[in-house]
Design a protein around this nucleic acid. Structure first.
Length: 257
DNA sequence: ATGGCTTTAAAATAAAGA
């Protein structure tokens, strides 16, 4: 089976591209971030037409996550993270599909830093770690994937100096990410590309795509039970170059059944 | 460059993104 993640930057503007990607690559499960729409406007019928069932957790204007599955309804486990009743952002959705626990995340960006947005990012990462430790304790095949908004190491960015002040690569962001790995989660793309140089995001500005000025912030973290089943993984880079593309490219993992 | 694009919401600008 193939499990993919795609920050689509607006489901309304991206729908033709998204349906095209689903039909061309046919992932078993597709986790979406930044759907940027209220629940009542989620185009579930468009996905049903091409054979996908869906659950979603939206909000007005920004954020929002969804999980699509080929031919089966994802069985929702939870939406949102514990630990902050004030947090009304739609950034977390967890479900079971085909015997795999799947958490779709849209981690806060955190810019500008320092500041309240960066503090929110770090708090959110603590709450995520708590939930991921609970999932790990289940000792089941599990993957937590999505837009982590963290550049894990310098090898994951086209120019470390150019991004030095960005929230995505501050030491606190990186430390929090590496604590997840320390808990036993495996970064699939990093495992298969240890020298780096793999990007999942290219800014719309300054010709970043044309110059290949990107970085890697979309990640799939696997539990030991799922890491054992990893066959291959990759980035659907060509989809970033199409008309009206998202600024992210899809990432995917292929697993033994 | 307190942002060179892009999206959303909504009716001209503003917020958010990374």
């Amino acid at each position: 089976m193939r499990i993919a993640s795609y920050n689509i930057n607006g489901i309304k503007a991206r729908l033709p591209r998204l349906l095209e990607w689903l039909e061309e690559t046919r992932p078993t499960v597709a986790c979406l971030q930044e759907i940027k729409t209220m629940d009542e406007n989620f185009p579930v019928g468009e996905f049903e037409k091409v054979g996908y069932k869906a659950i979603w957790h939206g909000q007005k204007s920004f954020n929002g996550v969804a999980i699509l599955a080929d031919g089966v309804e994802p069985v929702e486990v939870r939406r949102g993270l514990d630990g902050d009743p004030e947090d009304d952002h739609s950034r977390y959705l967890e479900a079971d599909v085909a015997g795999v626990r799947i958490a779709c995340i849209y981690l806060p960006n955190g810019n500008p830093q320092p500041g309240p947005k960066f503090e929110y990012k770090l708090r959110w990462m603590k709450r995520l770690r708590k939930r991921m430790r609970e999932i790990a304790a289940l000792e089941v095949p599990a993957v937590v994937l999505g837009d982590y908004n963290v550049i894990p190491e310098d090898k994951d960015v086209w120019s470390p100096p150019a991004m030095a002040d960005d929230a995505l690569m501050q030491p606190q962001s990186r430390d929090a990410y590496h604590r997840l790995l320390g808990d036993g989660w495996t970064d699939a793309l990093d495992l298969h590309n240890p020298r780096g140089g793999i990007w999942t995001y290219w800014d719309y500005q300054a010709g970043a795509w044309q110059k290949d000025h990107g970085f890697r912030i979309d990640h799939a973290l696997l539990s030991p039970e799922l890491a054992d089943r990893l066959i291959s993984c990759g980035v659907d880079k060509a989809h970033r170059g199409r008309e009206k593309a998202s600024d992210h490219a899809p990432v995917w993992i292929e697993l033994r059944d």
